[in-house]
């Protein structure tokens, strides 16, 4: 007791010092969200300062989604994770137990404040007349997409193609596999990540069409100029849901649970949604969507839960060793 009393001043001093310094938050995210979260962080820090008077410093870390998840599992001190696929956050929950298994039900809309989809980037004037998925398997069309075994975005593209073929053939799995196999026969190079594929397509001029995130394709369009490439939105594609979550155990240790939660909830506010839309992520809010409607052509969506029974199942069946993707290449040999 006496000892506790003696330590009390030190403890009080400690908490005062802690409160006086800026609160630090680390957001571990995937590659293309760099610009999005720069804007979000600035807006949220301002709002937090106005509300609580506390300074907030938000750090960002970007990299391939799977690699980022592994870093968190291995001890990277992420207060929140915002990754490309639910499978990667599932892995953090399953392997490191840093957040509960039901993390995805804690925030609205499957914990995905924005969505995106897979679209086609083609050369100016669309010389090969690529309009929809069916055109990708035509002989003589060269398709660029990264290796799904090393790239999260590439897995979305693969599943988008599979889903299209399923819908088209009334759920015939065999035909879907055949369609995807034909598509990959038109792929001359599988880069290890999404940015690598963009370089291959844009800088090196290889391929007729690049399968890409809608937000990345739109950025490429702005950066390269509309005189070089065009975006083609297929009639149907996958609803890509990149989820967000508080990493409970890390946030509890840092004493940042409340601010981390508020940070993610900010993404769902009108202001957060609008920043998302400005960065070419499809907002959930109808109001923000209406305001930026010209950026987001209407198309029919299917979800991964609906056609593949969720990420865990899709991962196991298609991308694990000995899965369908491996089979496609073994058969092609």
């Amino acid at each position: 007791m006496k000892r506790t009393l003696r330590m009390l001043p030190a403890l009080m001093l400690g908490s005062v010092l802690f409160a006086a310094g800026p609160v630090k938050l680390l957001n571990v995210s995937y590659d293309p969200t760099r610009e999005l979260y720069q804007e979000i962080d600035a807006a949220f820090a301002k709002q937090w300062k106005a509300k609580t008077g506390a300074d907030l410093q938000i750090g960002q870390s970007h990299g391939g989604s799977g690699k980022q998840a592994r870093s968190v599992i291995d001890g990277l001190q992420a207060d929140v994770v915002t990754l490309a696929l639910a499978y990667d956050i599932d892995s953090i929950a399953e392997r490191a137990h840093l957040l509960p298994a039901n993390w995805q039900s804690r925030l609205p809309n499957n914990s995905t404040p924005y969505t995106s989809t897979i679209v086609f980037l083609v050369r100016k004037g669309n010389p090969k007349h690529i309009k929809d998925w069916e055109d990708l398997v035509r002989p003589g069309v060269s398709v660029i997409t990264p290796n799904p075994k090393t790239s999260g975005g590439a897995r979305w593209s693969y599943l988008a193609a599979w889903g299209y073929a399923l819908k088209r053939n009334n759920g015939d799995d065999k035909k879907a596999e055949d369609f995807v196999a034909r598509l990959y026969r038109n792929v001359p190079v599988l880069d290890s990540g999404a940015r690598g594929s963009t370089t291959t397509f844009v800088q090196r001029g290889i391929g007729d069409v690049l399968l890409d995130w809608e937000n990345e394709a739109s950025l490429a369009l702005n950066e390269l100029g509309r005189d070089k490439v065009e975006v083609v939105t297929p009639a149907i594609s996958i609803l890509a849901e990149p989820p967000v979550a508080v990493v409970d155990k890390v946030a509890a240790r840092h004493g940042t649970a409340a601010v981390a939660k508020a940070y993610l909830e900010f993404l769902y506010t009108e202001e957060g949604q609008e920043i998302g839309a400005k960065n070419y992520y499809r907002p959930r809010s109808a109001q923000a969507l209406a305001k930026y409607a010209s950026r987001f052509p209407r198309l029919q969506f299917f979800t991964i839960d609906e056609l593949f029974g969720g990420w865990q199942k899709a991962q196991k069946r298609h991308f694990e060793d000995g899965g369908v993707f491996d089979r496609i290449y073994l058969a092609g040999k």
Partner: peptide, 9 residues
């Protein structure tokens, strides 16, 4: 990895 093309098999 950039020059190889990473095609399985």
């Amino acid at each position: 990895i950039f020059i190889s093309g990473n095609l399985p098999m």
